[in-house]
Simulated assay, not measured.
Amino acid sequence: MAIQVGDRIPHFSALDTKGNSFDSDAVVGKKPFVIYFYPKDNTPGCTAQACSFRDQYEDFLDLGAEVIGVSSDSVISHQKFTSQYQLPFILLSDADKKIRTLFGVPSALLGMVPGRVTYVVDAAGVVQMVFNSMLAGKHIPKALEAVKKIVAVSM
């Protein structure tokens, strides 16, 4: 069952780009965040999406929000991807696809490609936006707009 707007984010953990264990408790209940699932490091759409999040990362930080990217790529792949494109945010390795399954992220292109879905979660851990589109460039403005709404409501 896919996570929907209004659902509480499930607890998860995975290895981050540095090979450290990341636990969702590090952000849930502390600040708003964007968690986006993407198909694969170093592919044209995924690189464009990651670089767009990179280019607007300061905007998310200024709003008190964190950005987390998730794919099934290895920690080593994430390290190369992060280094090559100077990605300042967290990438998680979901090699066993447990997080993708937990969120109910669907596959795309007749099930041949892992889906591209972005979730915006408020500081209480409640999903405020779900955006499912293979159009990589559309995710960043939608996520930023949703974070701005969360921040405006909490003021």
Score class of each variant (00 low, 15 high):
Val113Lys: 06
Gly29Phe: 03
Lys30Val: 11
Arg116His: 05
Tyr57Phe: 14
Gly137Lys: 12
Val117Leu: 02
Asn20His: 15
Lys148Cys: 08
Gln49Glu: 15
Asp25Trp: 01
Ala48Gly: 04
Gln49Pro: 09
Leu102Asp: 10
Pro141Leu: 10
Leu144Phe: 00
Lys148Ser: 12
Val27Glu: 05
Asp41Met: 05
Val127Trp: 10
Val147Trp: 01
Asn20Thr: 12
Ala108Pro: 00
Val130Met: 04
Val117Pro: 00
Gly69Tyr: 01
Leu109Tyr: 14
Phe22Asp: 05
Thr17Leu: 05
Met129Lys: 13
Lys80Ala: 13
Pro32Thr: 10
Asp25Ala: 14
Ile68Cys: 08
Leu15Glu: 14
Lys97His: 10
Val67His: 02
Ala108Thr: 03
Gln79Met: 14
Pro106Phe: 00
Ile68Asp: 09
Leu15Gly: 12
Ala123Leu: 08
Gln86Arg: 15
Lys31Pro: 10
Phe37Gln: 00
Lys40His: 07
Pro88Ala: 01
Ile3Gln: 09
Thr101Val: 08
Val70Asp: 06
Val153Asp: 12
Ile68Ala: 06
Ile3Met: 11
Ile68Asn: 07
Val75His: 06
Ser13His: 06
Val27Ile: 08
Ala136Leu: 04
Ala123Glu: 14
Ile90Ser: 01
Lys80His: 07
Glu145Cys: 00
Phe37Leu: 01
Pro141Met: 09
Asp23Ser: 14
Phe89Asn: 06
Ala124Met: 13
Gly29Met: 08
Thr118Cys: 11
Pro106Ile: 01
Val117Gln: 02
Cys46Met: 10
Gln84Ile: 12
Gly64His: 03
Tyr36Gly: 00
Pro106Leu: 01
Phe60Lys: 09
Phe60Arg: 07
Asn42Leu: 15
Glu66Ser: 11
Tyr36Met: 00
Ile99Cys: 05
Leu87Gln: 05
Phe53Tyr: 15
Leu92Tyr: 03
Ile90Pro: 02
Lys138Val: 12
Ala2Leu: 03
Ile9Val: 15
Lys138His: 10
Val75Ile: 03
Lys80Tyr: 08
Gln4Thr: 08
Lys80Asn: 14
Leu92Phe: 10
Met134Asp: 13
Asp59Glu: 15
Met129Gln: 08
Lys138Cys: 10
Ser13Pro: 00
Phe89Met: 12
Thr43Arg: 00
Ala2Gln: 09
Gln56Phe: 02
Val67Lys: 03
Ala136Gly: 00
Pro106Arg: 11
Gly19Ala: 10
Val120Ser: 04
